[in-house]
């Protein structure tokens, strides 16, 4: 069975239907890049996968757990599904290490010492070993986002959701974050990314999903899809990006 299975999911805000029957299968080790115009429903879809948004019909199974079930299920699900946000959302009153240690100690009841070791490990992975005791306000945007990635990794997720994680960064800081994500992909982490970084989607992604008007409009292997887009909408989107 797929790691994440999305079946005919529909969601509306009042009269506006933002997801009009989306289906998507994500296998272990896949790197799925979701692209599309703003308002196409790509962020909403991503947020449905870990229950930050609810949906009206269809089904989402992540690691065999039905999303949208009762509360206890959602907690179990989120232990295995990590998320990184556009605005970092680090906890400003905690240091980088404390940000990373919080969920392991509170949710998994990992002893402090062990949690500190996990923090050291994942912060080293994102290249921030020397910033363990820095507060978020003392870090650049790129460093903050890397701490946010480390914070998710500390829970040992089976899949990591990335919601436009470079969109709030200054251009010169984008690459340091993308390099970290690329490294994760190489290590076999399952990733679902909503992104505007087309080159990254093509070079690192194993699957490309183009969303348009709340539907999966076109999908396939990134290089093939970018080389020869089948639908006029994607052609226009790709040429618009340049």
């Amino acid at each position: 069975m797929s790691l994440v299975s999305i079946r005919d999911v529909r969601k509306s805000y009042g009269d506006v239907e933002v997801l009009k029957g989306v289906s998507l299968e994500v296998e272990k080790g896949d790197v799925v890049a979701i692209i599309g115009r703003s308002g196409s429903g790509k962020s909403t879809l991503l947020r449905c996968i870990n229950g930050l948004e609810t949906y009206q019909s269809g089904a989402i199974l992540a690691d065999g757990i039905e999303v949208g079930g009762e509360h206890a299920n959602l907690r179990e699900l989120r232990r295995h599904v990590g998320m990184v946000f556009q605005q970092f959302n680090l906890f400003p009153h905690l240091t980088a290490a404390e940000n990373v240690m919080l969920a392991p100690t509170v949710v998994n009841k990992t002893p402090k010492k062990e949690a500190r070791a996990i923090a050291a490990e994942v912060l080293a992975k994102v290249g921030l070993s020397e910033k363990m005791d820095a507060y978020p306000s003392q870090l650049s945007g790129g460093q903050q986002q890397r701490v946010a990635i480390a914070r998710s990794l500390a829970m040992r997720p089976k899949v990591l959701l990335c919601d436009e994680i470079t969109s709030a960064l200054d251009p010169e800081l984008v690459n340091e974050v993308l390099r970290v994500v690329e490294q994760l992909a190489k290590e076999g982490m399952t990733l679902i990314l909503v992104t505007h970084e087309m080159r990254f989607a093509r070079d690192v992604g194993t699957h490309l999903v183009f969303m348009h008007h709340g539907k999966v409009h076109e999908s396939g292997a990134p290089k093939a899809v970018f080389a020869a887009p089948q639908t006029p909408e994607l052609q226009q989107f790709v040429s618009g990006i340049g």
Binding site: N50, L52, R75, E76, R78, R79, V81, G82, M83, F85, Q87, N89, L90, F91, P92, H93, L102, A103, V106, V107, A148, R151, S152, M155
Partner: peptide
């Protein structure tokens, strides 16, 4: 975003309040 980030880390409502929201 503080609620969403802590919720995504599998923290319960009480844990979110106790460790993330109330200290701020």
């Amino acid at each position: 975003g503080q609620w969403e980030a802590s919720g995504s880390l599998a923290m319960s409502y009480i844990e979110q309040m106790r460790y993330v929201i109330l200290p701020q």
